[in-house]
Nucleic acid binder design. Structure first.
Lengths: 223, 223, 223, 223
DNA sequence: CATGAATGAGATTTCATTCAT
DNA sequence: TATGAATGAAATCTCATTCAT
């Protein structure tokens, strides 16, 4: 009978914290992202990642093969995140100036919110993009972005609010550059200029500056 | 308390070829710069640096204390080099627009010519500028640069060729950003945009673009 | 920022024989005690300790952090051993004179049997007890010893077989001194006096001498 | 003429600090004694000795051959010093009790004043007196000391102030032990007993204790 | 006599990875 | 699935000693 008094209790198994493969995998990935973006690929320690994830070291190898495999997983996961975020941007429904402003500010805010993305790009560039080159999806994923910018530029030129002949890739690199460099290099810049560039109000001011620079560049020259 | 006489060590052999401390120090610094900028601080190997410099490993410790001391020396030396080059520009003798153009193009060309500078900054920022903050010279090293830009901006405003109220630090960060990001991230950018951003003629075009962006931003708004 | 994927390391081979953490830890501690007491802290070699323990060198760091941590463990373990042995004496059940005699002879025999204890103390005193001072257990470890001696002295005074007013710490230092110095300095003493102080019968005679000295000191002065 | 105005001054040679072999040798010996007694033989650093002596490292090798030779010189010099001090003790002119008291207090005070002597003995004993055994003088140097004690003991026995049948070597070892151990182990003893054994008034008290212990031992047993 | 740069051997410590349980 | 002890290779750093100047 089920309702009877307990006799000898069955030895309870040690309460394994996870036993949930998905959770374990996710915890490792999160820990690895933090560790690798903080210390770089060679600086990151496998032991530290396992400890941070609260998981046995052996599990890293079980799920990701080796440290390099873990790095690739982190990279893919991080890129996937930014792609997902970009989907929500419906620039083409706005007027050209408002659309451009939105793109610029979105990009800037994304860098503020995702320092791990900046770190990872730095790491990957030091690596001469060795991994990224092996990815087939990456390339096609950026076509829509360039397309969106092209549409904005064309409509802006037609409406005489933008100059004609702007190269969308050159422009996008500049939009990214103005935010990326500020955020990725804010520690050295703060040190050499003796100013705290990470202060929230300073970030707002930087965002406005970037918008100004980009819009000034796009503005048609008056006769 | 220490017992047992030490084993007599084996006799060292023939001494070095140089006996020229300055040369040795410089060779180590050069080798360390190359190795550290290629592999990062944790990725760089002390053995590799010594081998590249053609000196005994022991010398690195003799001259620089330890790996971190060597890294700090590389960092200071690299920063000093760009700031020294900037001083040689003599911008204040030119008219404001020409002076600004010269500064922008110099900065851009410097990044092209000194990829090690870009790498080192990336490494140091991953470290949250921990080493740079310990350097006492660094801060004063940058005052002249900001001063030069201020002079240019003031004279440009007086001559009505620049807008008034431009923040020189904000401006310098943008000048640097437009070149730095392009060069430091050229591997990933080339991959995602499917264009070889390292081609010489492409670099020239980027330089012109940066000048355009900066000058458009500085241009006074017509009424 | 760290670039360049790490070289894949060569695959480790067959694992150890034991897989018995307690045994491994104990083996390392035993080997370290032997090596450090024979050569001193700086003279002891980590490689030699690992070899003597029959374990991989890496394990020393796994269990004890570093060489200093290992030294501290040796120190604590060695002190704990003598204090534990003392507690087993049950002195308080004997009459005062017999109890004191037993304590003196026990202490003397302990020094004969544990030359590593003498060496370790010499090493640590050269260090100005720097390591011992960091140990939290050590202090409390000695309270029982002093307590035991106090009880003996009080009972002896009450029974008029000991003088009153004896300081237990001063007394214990003298008990230890008379044996410790003889054993720890027996090599130089044998040399300068031209007598083999390590001969078994000589050790017995010394033990009797120490008992005599201590009991003469404790004896109440007749009027 | 000597009184004329100076013309071109002869280039003054850099003011070499020493150029005085004896001074240099003595400085090295002093520095080596300090370093070796503080850190032990293996713990002492050749560089540190040279720096402390304010002398070029090469000089150590010039004067003493190698590190081991330097150790031997330190040992010899230190022994020579205690021998010199003992010469002034004219114990045999005093009455037995006063003479014994003087010997005990002299020995105690010598240990207080010469901690380097204690350290060196500890080091040499760890070394199993390997060096001391090679010295031919050492042995004969201690005969007078033993002789002095024998005379005191005999006269004391004759005058019925000392027991008969005391072994002078056993006694001397005890006299030395009671002071040596206290001083050489004062760091660990202070730590485990939680009392500052190095305080000046504490040292005075210890001296009195040692005298008491020794005289109680020598006292004839009343019938 | 004096300097200090240079050396080779070897010390301690770190690391990604694997294996017994 | 999960644990953490164990491993070999290689990293950083130290040291007594020698040599060119």
């Amino acid at each position: 009978m089920e309702g009877s008094l307990p006799k000898t209790r069955s030895k309870p198994r040690a309460a394994s914290l996870t036993r949930d493969p998905e959770r374990t995998r996710a915890a490792i990935l999160r820990a690895a992202t933090a560790e690798i973006t903080a210390k770089g690929l060679t600086g990151a320690r496998v032991d530290a990642i396992a400890a941070r994830a609260g998981v046995n070291k052996r599990m890293l190898y079980h799920y990701f093969g080796d440290k390099q495999g873990l790095y690739l997983a982190v990279l893919e996961h991080t890129y996937a995140a930014i792609r997902a975020a970009e989907i929500g941007l419906n620039l083409t429904e706005l007027d050209p100036v408002a659309g451009m402003r939105k793109l610029v500010l979105f990009t800037w805010q994304y860098f503020i919110d995702h320092p791990e993305f900046l770190s990872l790009l730095a790491t990957e560039n030091m690596n001469r993009a060795a991994y990224l080159k092996t990815s087939k999806q990456i390339r096609t994923l950026h076509a829509p972005l360039v397309g969106m910018i092209e549409v904005l530029l064309k409509r802006g030129a037609a409406e005489k609010v933008f100059r004609a002949g702007i190269d969308p890739i050159e422009l996008y690199i500049s939009i990214a550059a103005l935010g990326f460099f500020y955020m990725s290099n804010r520690h050295t810049l703060s040190t050499i200029f003796g100013e705290n560039l990470s202060a929230p109000e300073r970030l707002v001011r930087r965002g406005e500056h970037i918008v100004e620079v980009i819009l000034a560049y796009l503005k048609p020259t008056k006769l």
